[in-house]
Design a protein around this nucleic acid. Structure first.
Length: 213
DNA sequence: TTATAGATTGCCT
DNA sequence: GGCAATCTATAAT
């Protein structure tokens, strides 16, 4: 009996996401985000994530109630919330908590696992045959970068079902442990600077920022 | 109707 | 380290 490859593993079930976003964010570290584009398989291990809640979290898009942009957050958990930020970038979230509670987890950094050449193409980067770690970081170290590296857009992916393999975008558990986890304040969330709802894998090269922790 | 800030990134000095 | 790019949501006229 051999270990199944990434592409054969089943998506995490909806019950995984139907919990407090802070718990989900922490537990998503070490899991693998999978993207299918036709025959191509792109995948990366989640090494940084942030939790956003609803009515009690001034840093969250859902804080002021439902709008066309954030409607996905008020539906069933386990769906993609993709938004366009600063006129330049997409950010990828997974909705959490039971129906009616608007929590989500922002995916902020991945360690590439599968499809590195395709990711580089989507990012518009020319990687050498043996890229240095500092060059690989440019693929998926940051929420806008990882979204671009996996070809994720609001037009195509907002609202898609993270619990279905057929959606082409989902998360699996390949059995490996995340390692030691650190909680910190969220990046660029000035309205709630004291909440330590950003979770990172300590020492992982792909955590975003110059000094990751 | 206009102004401004924002869950970012890349290029410039 | 500074700042431009440039879309969206919300606040201010």
């Amino acid at each position: 009996m051999s270990a199944p490859s990434i592409g054969q593993l089943s998506p995490l079930p909806r019950s995984f996401y139907a919990r407090d976003a802070r718990v989900v964010a922490r537990e998503l570290l070490g899991k693998v985000l999978v993207r299918r584009e036709g025959r191509a398989l792109l995948a990366g291990r989640i090494v940084e994530a942030e939790a956003y809640l609803g009515a009690i979290d001034p840093g969250a898009h859902a804080y002021r109630g439902r709008t066309p942009r954030n409607a996905v957050l008020f539906g069933a958990p386990g769906h993609a919330y993709v938004y366009f930020i600063y006129g330049n970038h997409y950010c990828t979230n997974v909705s959490c908590q039971p129906v009616g509670e608007a929590g989500c987890v922002l995916l902020r950094a991945l360690e590439p696992v599968c499809g590195i050449a395709a990711m580089a193409a989507l990012r518009g980067l020319a990687l050498p045959a043996n890229p240095r770690p500092s060059q690989l970081r440019l693929l998926t170290s940051g929420p806008g970068r990882l979204s671009q590296a996996l070809g994720i857009s609001r037009e195509h992916d907002n609202g898609c079902n993270f619990c279905s393999r057929r959606s082409g975008l989902y998360i699996v558990d390949d059995g490996s442990a995340a390692g030691e986890i650190l909680a910190t304040p969220r990046i660029n969330v000035t309205s709630a600077p004291l909440d330590e709802w950003r979770f990172v894998v300590i020492g992982n090269t792909f955590v975003s920022g110059k000094r990751p922790h």
